[in-house]
Design a protein around this nucleic acid. Sequence first.
DNA 1: CCTGAACTACGAATCTTTTCGTTGACCATA
DNA 2: TATGGTCAACGAAAAGATTCGTAGTTCAGG
Lengths: 131, 131
Amino acid sequence: MRMGDKPTPRPTDAELAILRVLWERGPSTVREVHDDLSRTQDTGYTTVLKLLQIMTDKGLVVRDESQRAHVYATRESEQRTQGRLIGDLIERAFGGSPTKLVMQALSGTKASAEELTQIRELLEKMEGEAK
Amino acid sequence: MRMGDKPTPRPTDAELAILRVLWERGPSTVREVHDDLSRTQDTGYTTVLKLLQIMTDKGLVVRDESQRAHVYATRESEQRTQGRLIGDLIERAFGGSPTKLVMQALSGTKASAEELTQIRELLEKMEGEAK
DNA sequence: CCTGAACTACGAATCTTTTCGTTGACCATA
DNA sequence: TATGGTCAACGAAAAGATTCGTAGTTCAGG
């Protein structure tokens, strides 16, 4: 990130919905994003287009204009964006304590035994490192 | 919650900042909230007042008007609100998978050994129940 | 009783987010 | 070369979030 560049802003709700499509589909045209989104919600084509243009300005996505139908791709990985959103929520709602968020998330969920095991394995790996 | 009542809406950023003060202080007057908030940010008194009035309309807080300086209190517990926010983020950014969020939150943090232990204990308790 | 401090209520301005209509370009094909 | 389909660009409207000035009420102290 160059000096003077703003850090990537937190995506809004509508923007996040689009990011999720791009994460799932990979680089896509407006039409592809719109068709995908239409399966679950009722958004106009030009709305999606406008949003993607705004997201390009904000630096949330990048645009390949070499084809007539421009192709949009996320600028940051799914993980990185998710990590940013979590960090943001930790700051705003959990007084900066990641542990509180994890505890709350865990107790609020009915995860399967396999999932719990998966989490515990990561946990044990971290405990090993934190020694 | 009575029939026809709207579910509590997601608090906005400014609203969440106020909720945090109320969680920490307990029921408080506008002035108390404002003074607390002023330690970290620069918000006008009437701005806080207006926000609390809006939050009352939305059902995020309740107001005791028996004194001249009205006393505001959160309507839902800290935990419940936090749980709602997490659930919301899971829906919007993690495709509905709580496990993904927990994994991501864990790997993105440098929790202390004690905290990791704390989490693991909760985890083991849950594994016991999920058996 | 008058004044000033502390308070609520209200309205409006501003900013951001979301939505979509309209326009004009491009291109295939009839 | 006209027609229709697909596209990006743009502007503006609508809705939501945030901010604060101003006005009017209440009350304690002089």
